[in-house]
Each structure stands twice: as C-alpha cells, then as structure tokens.
Amino acid sequence: MPKLSQEIDSRIPVTVLTGFLGAGKTTLLNHVMTANHGEKIAVIINEYGEVGIDNQLVVGADEEIFEMNNGCICCTVRGDLIRILNELMEAKNGNSHRKQVHFDRVLIETTGLADPAPVAQTFFVDENIAEQYKLDAIVTVVDAKHAEDQLDKGHEAQEQVAFSDVLLVNKVDLISEEELHKLEKRLKIMNPAAKLYRTEQSSVDLKKILGINAFELDKKLELDPDFLNSHEDDHEHDDEVKSIFFREDRPLDLDKMERFLKEWLTEHGADTLRYKGVLHINGVKQRIIFQGVHMLFASAPDRNWKSDEIPRSEFVIIGRNLDEAWFKSQFAACVAS
C-alpha cells in the first residue's frame, strides 16, 4: 500500500470506464482519444468474446491499445490486468525488452458485463500496483433508452451504477424528459454520491471524468465492507449470456446482409444485448462500421481499407439464448456470389 505523505502523488492516475452492453463506452473512449487534452493515454480494453472488436473501433490509438479477451476483467483475466499494468510501467521506465512507451494516465474499458468492484480492488490489494498507480475514478455510462430494463434484470448493471464515481446518462435524446427524470431519480437513490451528467453520443467535458480524484476507498467500504476481501470467484455471470464471433475474408453482399439484419432484429432483437463490428462489403472501398443495442441499429462508412491489411468482416453479438447455429448459417449465406 502507498504510504500517506504530504508530497505530491506521482503515481499514474487510472480511470475505469464501465457501463452495460451498448451504453456508449467505446464512443466515449473515442472522444477521449481524439480530444485536444495534451496527454498521452494508455488504453486497456477488456472484451467478453474470444476475439476483440473494440480495438478496431477506437480511433487514433493503434500503439496504445492493450487487449484482454476471452474473459471478464473481474474474473479469469484479472491476472492479465496486473501483468499488463506492470509491463506498461516497465516499458515507461525503459526497463523492458519492449519499445519504451510514454503515457500520463491509463484508461481501462471493461466489458459491459463486468463488475467494477474487483477491478478497483486491484489497485489496493496488489502492493506493486498500488505503489505505481492511483485509481482516479470509476466512470459508468448508462444507456438511458434501455437502463430501466437492464437495471431490473441485470445485477451487473446495478453493480456498475452502485460503484460509480461519475454517472454519464447517455442517449438522453432517445427518451422523454419525464422518463429521464424518473431514471435519474432511480440512479440517485442507488448511488447518491456519484456525479451525474446527461450526454448525447457520450460527449462530455473531459474535465468532468479525468483527473478528478474521485475514488474514495472509505465510501466504497461503506457500500461493501468486504470490498478488499472478496475473491475472484465471487462474481458470476448469467449463464444465458453468450457471445458469438463472426469472421469472413470474402466480401459480403449488401442486400443479403441487410435482409439478414432485418430478420435477426425482428426475431431476436429483444435477446440481442449488444452487437458491433466491421464489415467488408463487395464493391465498397471503405470499412463499414456497424453496432447496436437490441433493435437500435446504426452503420456508417469508415476509412478506406489500408494497403497492408486484408479486408475482412469481423463482428460480435452478445445476447441471451442465442441460437449460434442459426446465426452462423444466416451469415454464411451473406457472402457475395
């Protein structure tokens, strides 16, 4: 544990970015990475699926992205978090076989199914990490459109709100003022100590989420007296939740893909918690980025494919009671003739 001192805290500040599936975490991360804040930020992304997608959706951060896949950051890959943080510091200090890196702070984006409490524990129970890093804040993005249902059904969403220092109520343009007031009242009852800001497209003044020194251990211990004593196997996920990953090097037919999406969302939209990825469409020079939550879907052309990369479609679907065989067969039929 770091010693109390009157000296300036020289540890690297860490912001944990959490929020349920599809709330807008990656959009917020893009705002941070493209903003003119003058800081170098190392980003650690944890994804629930076997193969990562988020690193492809974060702009301007090719060399600063560190992925942890195939597990929840609060469960199977928590050791990876400690390892990566240690490797980052070694590289920063020039004590690594890796290229020296320079960064002023770390931002950790957790999977939408993560309980943030075990992530925060890492910065207190691991002595080496506690001496080098300081947990600055836990920022939770809340999907205003789907929050009520998510809070009713998912204990992960409740934990994310309860342990947050800052709540970003996102997508406020998609609900009425009456619905928004009701949601905010519920959130304040769940976590009266958290700062609450309304956002659209996860756009927020970064001074409200970075360098705010908001994480207070004493308050977290009041919320959960066993905060520093809980074990990794205390956290369990809904067995009905699974991820399906798709990859295809051959170009896709646009009309076929649109029909597949329409049928998928009509038949399985309610069970589809989150989906996102990159599509390689026949005859289109740009990557097509698409993502959505339940029935809400958006897509747009991105940059051109680079000369040194193989154009391919990669995307992930996270949901409950999904028929993987059906999805795989429907997707396979979308390959261009």
Rank of each mutant, 00 (worst) to 15 (best):
G283Q: 10
K285H: 09
D233S: 11
K242R: 09
H235E: 15
F245S: 11
D238M: 08
V241A: 08
E236Y: 02
S243L: 09
V278I: 15
G283P: 06
H237F: 12
P251R: 13
L265W: 01
D233R: 09
K285N: 12
P251A: 13
N282W: 01
K262W: 11
G277L: 08
R247M: 14
K262T: 15
H268W: 02
D238S: 12
E248I: 11
L261C: 07
D233I: 02
L254R: 13
L252W: 05
T266S: 06
G283L: 09
R274S: 12
I244A: 09
L261M: 05
I281W: 05
D239R: 06
D249W: 05
R259M: 13
K276Q: 01
R247Y: 14
A270R: 11
M257F: 02
R287P: 07
G269D: 15
D239V: 01
D238G: 13
L252C: 03
G283S: 10
E236H: 11
I244P: 00
E248P: 08
Y275C: 02
D239E: 08
D255R: 04
G269V: 04
R274M: 11
F260A: 01
V278Q: 14
F260T: 00
R274A: 14
D271F: 01
N282A: 07
D234Y: 10
E263Y: 07
F246Q: 08
D249L: 01
R247G: 12
K285F: 12
D271A: 01
G277Y: 09
D253I: 10
F246M: 01
R247H: 15
P251M: 13
D253R: 07
H268D: 06
E240G: 02
D255P: 01
E263K: 02
E267W: 00
R287A: 06
N282I: 01
W264Y: 13
G283T: 12
V284H: 12
E236A: 09
H237I: 12
W264S: 01
P251F: 15
D271L: 00
T272C: 00
T272I: 03
K242M: 01
Q286L: 02
G277H: 02
L273S: 07
E236W: 03
E267G: 00
R287S: 04
N282M: 10
D234Q: 11
K276R: 00
L273T: 02
N282K: 09
R259S: 13
P251I: 11
N282F: 08
Y275N: 04
R250P: 05
A270V: 08
D271G: 03
G283K: 05
H237L: 15
F245N: 09
H280T: 12
R247A: 15
H268Q: 09
L265Q: 05
R247I: 14
L279N: 04
K285W: 08
R274L: 08
S243N: 10
H268N: 10
E258W: 04
